[in-house]
Amino acid sequence: MRFTRILTVAVAAAAATTLVACSGGDDVNDAAANTDAGEQKVIEMPDQPGSVEGYVGAADDAELVTCDPQGSALEVEGTVTNPESDDQDYRVYISAMEGGETMGIVQVDVSNVATGETAEWSTEMALTGDDLECVLRVERF
């Protein structure tokens, strides 16, 4: 009976953790705000990935040109090239990674990229570190 009670408590704790992890984006921003100043994460993502109806993953359309720490910021630049027969909008999520940990995520929207054209985008994150790497998630719609 004691084992059953322990198992029940463990399952309830796991369920509560899952619910907290799956809750809205405000919790992510609150968690970032509550970290030590030296460990503060950058999260500037007004839209949830995959939130636009009819989006298509478009990593092949994007190129990362620069992911470079400059002073007190990580400067990131890239391009998107539209291979479709109609104008396209792009949403690029840039994750700054350090040793497998996400240090920041920023969203960049690129609108009305004409057929066959390439558009440049850029952003920066208030992050420093020599080991930061950038990872892109790209959506086309």
Rank of each mutant, 00 (worst) to 15 (best):
G24V: 06
V113E: 00
F3Y: 14
C67K: 05
V52L: 06
S122N: 15
N112M: 10
T4V: 15
N34A: 15
K41F: 10
A73Q: 11
A21T: 13
V108S: 01
T128V: 13
V110C: 02
Y90M: 00
Y55F: 10
I105H: 01
L136D: 02
T102Q: 07
L64E: 08
V110I: 13
S111A: 13
T123L: 00
A58H: 00
V76G: 01
A59T: 08
I105E: 08
M97F: 04
N34T: 12
M103R: 15
G71Y: 04
L19K: 02
Y90N: 00
I94C: 00
D30A: 11
V108N: 00
E44S: 13
N82H: 10
D109I: 10
G100H: 01
E120P: 05
D89G: 10
E44W: 07
A126N: 14
T128F: 05
T79H: 03
P46H: 06
A126V: 13
S23Q: 10
V65S: 12
T81W: 02
P83M: 03
I94P: 00
R137S: 13
E39C: 05
I6A: 11
D130I: 08
G99N: 08
E53C: 03
V92C: 00
D30G: 10
A31N: 12
V42A: 02
S122D: 15
D61G: 01
A21D: 07
Q48G: 01
